[in-house]
Design a protein around this nucleic acid. Sequence first.
DNA 1: CCAGAAGTACACTGATCTGTGAACCACCAG
DNA 2: CTGGTGGTTCACAGATCAGTGTACTTCTGG
Lengths: 197, 197
Amino acid sequence: MPETRSRTPAGQRILAAAEELFYDRGITAVGVDLIAEHSGLTKRTLYNQFGSKDHLVTAYLTERDQRWRALVRDTVDTCADPVEAVTAPFDALRTWSRTNTRGCAFINALAELPDPAHPAHRIAADQKHWLLNLFGELATAAGCAQPARLATRLLVLHEGALATQPLALDTLAESTGLARSLVRASLETGGLEGTQR
Amino acid sequence: MPETRSRTPAGQRILAAAEELFYDRGITAVGVDLIAEHSGLTKRTLYNQFGSKDHLVTAYLTERDQRWRALVRDTVDTCADPVEAVTAPFDALRTWSRTNTRGCAFINALAELPDPAHPAHRIAADQKHWLLNLFGELATAAGCAQPARLATRLLVLHEGALATQPLALDTLAESTGLARSLVRASLETGGLEGTQR
DNA sequence: CCAGAAGTACACTGATCTGTGAACCACCAG
DNA sequence: CTGGTGGTTCACAGATCAGTGTACTTCTGG
């Protein structure tokens, strides 16, 4: 399989062009000829490297997922305070949003690729579960009450801010503030209103 | 313009088929021939009624928006208690989700139609602003503190539950619970942790 | 020097896509 | 009876799509 081989320089350039075009214009709307043209390489090289458009789409999502996870990990790691670390993914999202203004690439990909058997569905589900687990681990490490429930709520806030991003409502600041409030509340003794029911 | 004329029975059937196919399989992935075939009408009639695929897409989103708003309005109106009414849109979302499992049709449409000049962008933005304003009005009517801020937070929770729906994480129950907690907290005296900062 | 890998140039297939033209039919109101 | 509206049938144009075949070049490691 071509996608398991280490990427050649030409393959990397094609993948970079594909990432930009797929994210900005949508997967179905972007043809392989356009990707080849934007990358400065030929369509033949694209097919020699990736085998098919579907494989290129999968590589695009995989690469993007790795870049995003690295950013989140880095942002979390720079937090000395374990309480601040719980909401660090929201800070990472702020950084990420400066250069990615078309919402979540994975939600967008699922919108265009309805077939549940497509690898994109597994990649997207894995990513969200990864973030959910990360929230859970961070909440546990910070000593939050009911870390699993808190993690789910933080995930909803995160995805909500991401989903409403293309609408220019500036929901990120509000959801980050609410996330911090939830973490703070979960550290206080007894079941507050955020934890009951 | 054909889209302003009152719809003929054939036009309604075509629009119904388009709604189902566009939502389930994506807009770009569905061709006009497929819509004609599923509706039992001809492609010629489709073009006589709607003029172009773009107009049909716009009609699809408009119709869907109206159906959804009617459901939300009805759900809100059946609430005797003004406090319960604030989170009624979350109950409407639960009903809606039973037959619409592919996330938000408008977010999905924006993913496929990157051109900001496309009417879909206006329709989607209008819908989210409508919900935001509705949350604000309901919060004010219920006597919540800082209704505008609460409305934004409720919108984020709503969209977060909707965005994560295709991932089968059952985030709707959790976000609904959190929404109720926020409303409850905003009714108690003094600035709680959910309102400060 | 040579073999193989990577990339180019370019023509091409077959399928699918949106959209049109034109003749035709059925029905209903005036 | 007649004209118009709504719908059908079917062929077709023109563009674009994913993907292939083949011969050529260029570079590098042994």
